[in-house]
Design a protein around this nucleic acid. Structure first.
Length: 270
DNA sequence: CTTATTCCCTGATTGC
DNA sequence: TGCAATCAGGGAATAA
């Protein structure tokens, strides 16, 4: 479950080695990984293209190419992108290998086959509808408050909606709401201005703390070197029902919201 | 326009 | 112990 901090960690790992490099070949061990165009067309069009920039939008990684086209990758639940200078160890989960002109290889591993690749002329075809980037200056408490009022849905569901705010998923939505002291089922349009301020701050701090620890690994997430992140131990909300709240010791509750496990402290987030 | 539900996929976990 | 059923979840597609 790579979310913004995990994808940004991978981006920072990849950018210095990939910018200026050229793709020389594409090997699709599971062609279903290509969402757009067809697998055959991506195999034909990507080789020979040089990487101008490695960017991120929400949970998407963007490899902007000198041609103006963009290669996009989404890791979804269980994907990882690992850079090596030798051939990959045999793995049943290796779905694609992108080889670069310096001999390095970018392996896309994904046990659950949810992850996808796109090669498009206009990246907005894929990421155009995403909400604001929470760490960018355009995301302000005032803007958050105004937009919260337009929704009659539980705040947790809204935080996970990529068209409302890009990059937050199940874990960091729970973290931010805990930090802000807001119950996950509170309706967005009932939020008070000061609560939107606290939430805005809480979102940023939750993401920045995780980024400083190179992301949260609790099962599969790996950085571009194949290493786990260190943030699992530093999460404010233990993701086990009945575990003591890190702030007050009360038993952490688990509910199901939109099919997602939601953890919160009934005392701190009353 | 909004919000809610189903489905994809497979390793891990739970239940009998 | 073993095997089947259930769980986990990001987001597209679909329904309302």
């Amino acid at each position: 479950m790579p979310e913004l901090p995990e994808v940004e960690t991978i981006r920072r790992d990849l950018a210095p080695t990939l910018v200026g490099r050229r793709f020389v070949s594409v090997e699709l061990l599971w062609p279903g990984i290509v969402r757009q165009p067809t697998a055959e067309e991506l195999e034909r069009r990507l080789p020979g293209q040089t990487i101008a920039e490695v960017a991120r939008r929400g949970k998407y990684l963007l490899f902007r190419l000198e041609s103006g086209e963009t290669l996009l990758a989404h890791l979804k639940m269980s994907g990882s992108l690992v850079l090596r200078d030798t051939a990959e160890a045999a793995s049943p989960y290796l779905r694609a290998v992108l080889t670069l002109d310096d001999g390095r290889r970018l392996g896309f591993y994904d046990p659950r086959k949810f992850g996808r690749l796109w090669l498009v002329a206009d990246e907005n075809e894929v990421v155009g509808k995403l909400g604001p980037e929470p760490l960018e200056p355009e995301f302000t408490p005032q803007e958050l408050y105004t937009r919260l009022l337009r929704h009659g849905t539980p705040i947790k569901a809204l935080l996970c909606d990529q068209n409302f705010l890009a990059g937050i998923g199940n874990i960091y939505a729970d973290e931010a709401l805990f930090y802000a002291g807001i119950h996950p089922l509170r309706l967005a349009r009932e939020m008070q201005p000061w609560e939107a301020d606290r939430l805005h701050c809480a979102i940023r701090i939750s993401l920045e703390r995780a980024l400083a620890n190179r992301g949260t690994t609790f099962s599969r997430y790996r950085d571009a070197y194949g290493e786990p992140g260190r943030h699992w131990e530093a999460l404010l909300v233990p993701r086990r029902p009945g575990a003591p709240c890190t702030r007050c010791g009360t038993s952490i509750q688990r509910i199901r919201l939109r099919g997602r496990g939601t953890y919160f402290c009934p005392d701190c987030q009353g």
